[in-house]
Design a binder for these strands. Structure first.
Lengths: 338, 338
DNA sequence: TTGTAAGCGTTATCAA
DNA sequence: TTGATAACGCTTACAA
């Protein structure tokens, strides 16, 4: 259509110099209010937008955030819990003018490490949605000078925004003891290489007694998903020592548990009550709908984005820390108050 | 750490000129095998990677694909079916050295149209995962000179890769007639502003009779999700004219149907049999597990990526067309052969 | 086969 | 307050 608009053409049209136009666009330096306003109006009128590549080349800022969504953990975009956090992160980051780009280990034909990729793409910061502690390259990246946040990993030199797992487990414990008025509980934990599962398990183990509860089993699920929950529940059933309540440390697990119980003609919540953690989308659609701890995914994503952008824009702010986001109990039909 | 590596420093180190180094990196022009090999080795050794911004600025190619994931349809990353296709698209695109970037309507403070965004970011092509036909801006984008593919929308000037809905519905019809040996079926359709739902409905309506089936109801669900399916099923139940089989035009809908039937003490598959379409992750975990048509999401994503990259790299290839990907029946427990 | 040099559209430093 | 001008790191004619 119309030919290319650059700060040059704008400068010419307005009788200014490119430098001045640049200052105006970036709200920098001293420009008279009058000139600034006129230029801004004109820019808006012609629909000019700065070339990001030129800007990037010159200023070393890309307004791009690199995303790591560890596929080694076999958690892709399909995993709805983290996808959802990412979605909220994206919403916030974009509203601040940042662009997201998935970090991979290759560009064109070249294999490279995460850090090299970031260097090459000149991302301004990195968001590690879920990360694998075993991944040396990831650790290299975290220890680099790039600002990093995560909604999963905890590590020095990394800012972490996570749900308050301690609060969540305690709410569950309190609910079981004081509302359900049950005492015999089994706990199914996801793999401990996930920090969240580790934390939840620890809180459970150090606190259940103080709520007057007894554990008859703590089972380690073999994986993160539905099937692992199913298998763990089968183990419990086969033990012939049924608990009154099963706490699963994630909804994926809990839904598998429900299915296993159903398949074995155990009635929920009459024979056994089930509690989950996360409040994934399907939790409320299952039969029966799952009582669980709701993580505030929106807040998780938003805070992570806000924090990362702060880290990027004020280099002075501390790079390390943990922010805990409150959780809440969602009571549905896998439990029954007494 | 080490200072910046550019083609200049490489050229100096190797006693070559920057131009030659550039040619080597891009496999262009005439360079002696010897020189090329030496330079390539050196480049690998020092871990040099070209600055994408400089390259973009000069060559007008960004190796970036813009993604539209229409949020007006209220389908975000959370919707697992499309997320999954996107994931496969991403895998393929990345293996070809392309980067994905979500298209939004604003950069920094500036609001802009999709097309302006693409112009600004200089994306090489656009992948419309799901699109809204009502969206004028989207149509503007499709009609532009940018290569576009979609796994949902059908439009001239757009290449579409979709599942073979006709085949899918016919498989269902055949299965109901010849394996289930039932005749009385109700059909629940999702909103027709989605092309896929429209197509499925049409195939159903023009073909069921030739399979010897009778429809007692065709219900339009009010939305895309679980709850819409639930409500549609409730309507069927309240009609007091129960079909033998319910075909839902998506799994989300079908799962809602199952839930409604369960809640009303109708036994599946004994009282009513249920069929879905998509094979979403939860379909197999539901009680009972859903018989459905599996869409080959991997292929869908891959082919879309492959096609878009072809469109980008050979401008001569035609920009328009529809590629249908075969589907298959996944028989589970919401149906029973007779 | 290799080198030279002119841009690409910005930003930033000075000078005016 | 504004205007020149030199980078930024690369590609690409064109010259050697």
């Amino acid at each position: 259509m119309s030919k290319k608009i650059t700060i040059y053409t704008i400068a010419k049209d307005l009788g200014l110099s490119p430098g001045t136009v640049s200052k105006i666009i970036n709200n920098k330096g001293n420009v008279s209010e009058e000139t600034r306003k006129m230029a801004l109006d004109y820019i808006k009128k012609v629909g000019y937008v700065p070339s990001s590549s030129a800007r990037m080349l010159k200023s070393k800022r890309t307004y791009t955030i690199g995303i790591i969504f560890s596929e080694d953990l076999n958690i892709g975009l399909e995993q709805s819990f983290f996808s959802s956090i990412l979605q909220h992160f994206k919403d916030h980051a974009e509203s601040e003018g940042y662009d997201l780009s998935f970090i991979v280990r290759k560009i064109g034909q070249n294999e490279m490490s995460y850090y090299e990729w970031c260097l090459n793409k000149r991302v301004d910061g990195v968001y590690i949605v879920v990360g694998d502690y075993e991944d040396k390259e990831l650790i290299e990246l975290i220890n680099s000078d790039l600002p990093c946040v995560s909604t999963d990993m905890i590590h020095e030199n990394l800012y972490t925004v996570i749900s308050d797992n301690e609060q969540g487990i305690k709410i569950l414990l309190d609910f079981v003891a004081n509302d359900l008025k049950q005492t015999k509980v089994s706990y199914i934990s996801g793999p401990l290489r996930s920090k969240a599962f580790k934390e939840r398990l620890e809180v459970f183990q150090t606190n259940y007694e103080s709520y007057g509860l007894k554990t008859n089993q703590v089972i380690m699920a073999e994986g993160f998903g539905f099937t692992s929950g199913y298998n763990a529940a089968v183990k419990i059933i086969e033990s012939n020592d049924l608990p009154e309540v099963i706490i699963a440390s994630s909804d994926d697990l809990a839904l598998g548990v429900i299915k296993a119980l159903n398949d074995n003609n155990l009635s929920i919540p009459n024979d056994i009550q089930v509690l989950g953690f996360d409040d994934i989308a399907f939790a409320k659609h299952f039969t029966p709908p799952l009582t669980t701890i709701k993580q505030d995914r929106k807040k998780l994503g938003q805070i992570a984005a806000k924090k990362l952008i702060m880290l990027i824009e004020n280099n002075n702010s501390i790079k390390e820390g943990i922010e805990k986001v409150p959780v809440e109990l969602i009571e549905r039909e896998t439990t029954i108050r007494k």
